[in-house]
Design a protein around this nucleic acid. Sequence first.
DNA 1: TTCATCTTGTAGCCATAGCTACATATTTTC
DNA 2: GAAAATATGTAGCTATGGCTACAAGATGAA
Lengths: 160, 160
Amino acid sequence: MASRTTSKARQVVAGARPETRQAENFRQIRREHAHEIAEDYVEAIADLSATLGEARVVDLARRLGVTHVTVNRTLARLREAGHVNTKPYRAIFLTESGRKLAEECKRRHQTVVAFLRSLDISEKVAEKDAEGIEHHVSQETLAAFVRHLAAAAAGIRSSR
Amino acid sequence: MASRTTSKARQVVAGARPETRQAENFRQIRREHAHEIAEDYVEAIADLSATLGEARVVDLARRLGVTHVTVNRTLARLREAGHVNTKPYRAIFLTESGRKLAEECKRRHQTVVAFLRSLDISEKVAEKDAEGIEHHVSQETLAAFVRHLAAAAAGIRSSR
DNA sequence: TTCATCTTGTAGCCATAGCTACATATTTTC
DNA sequence: GAAAATATGTAGCTATGGCTACAAGATGAA
Ligand SMILES: [Mn+2]
Ligand SMILES: [Mn+2]
Ligand SMILES: [Mn+2]
Ligand SMILES: [Mn+2]
């Protein structure tokens, strides 16, 4: 029978804390995933409202690459979360909290895209990667991106 | 009744392609999410095997911050995907494809962490953000990170 | 060797997030 | 104003990915 290291021996060798911290990291990322859809939806609703005057279910479905059924069900949850107001067969409107969230997400999205662009990443890839990365960027990392952008801008100014 | 812009009018105004491209971005990110768990698992299994000599269900559960039930079910899927070999009540082993995937993920993970560290982000935050960001970094972006790291290293060399 | 503890497995619950198929409402067109 | 087209809503399916509660195997100590 394969001999195996016991729990106790392992704890003595490695210590318990690092494992706990890593577990906490994974938990936090799962929480971020839960928020991710809400963030992309409110951002899309704000954008469609600004561009087309109003956001409709079909528009969201096209934009997000899902069917109108999925949009409907997600909107129901966003309504319960207090981010949107919907009435049957009517356009979708953001609540105050939805607007605020959309505002934040848009700024963060733009920052991430600009940061990637500053590393000479092509526009298409920057847009695509940002769409996923944005949801996992902490305040500290976002601030570092902004610093980097400011430094790059200063570099260009001084070298022209 | 609220008048609304027609689909046709909208297409004329905005063009259909940008929406389609954005939808494709979102689809790709959903695909990445589907791979994400497999990536974190094989990376954890490789790491535990190297550190403790073998990877057990309880170890994975502790590491990933989930219950052993969740680990069991995910392992069943990883087995079907051909990434691990498991036998009841035995340690978990990576297949050749699992080992290869783990290798790639580990390198990418380390690159992302090193890149964030090079922006003066604290080690804890870098580790945490990398755990989420890593799954959404394209080849092009990863290459840009490596370039940036090389440039930073060269800068240090020339200024000492 | 037996007993307690630890580990693994399984049954079955929930929520999320996708889908097709179909029904109904609204809008546009003729 | 009726018909056609479009948009929205709903029923009900799948898979993922969490969980608790309980059952059973494996290991270590007495
Ligand atoms: Mn996004
Ligand atoms: Mn976004
Ligand atoms: Mn990860
Ligand atoms: Mn990782």
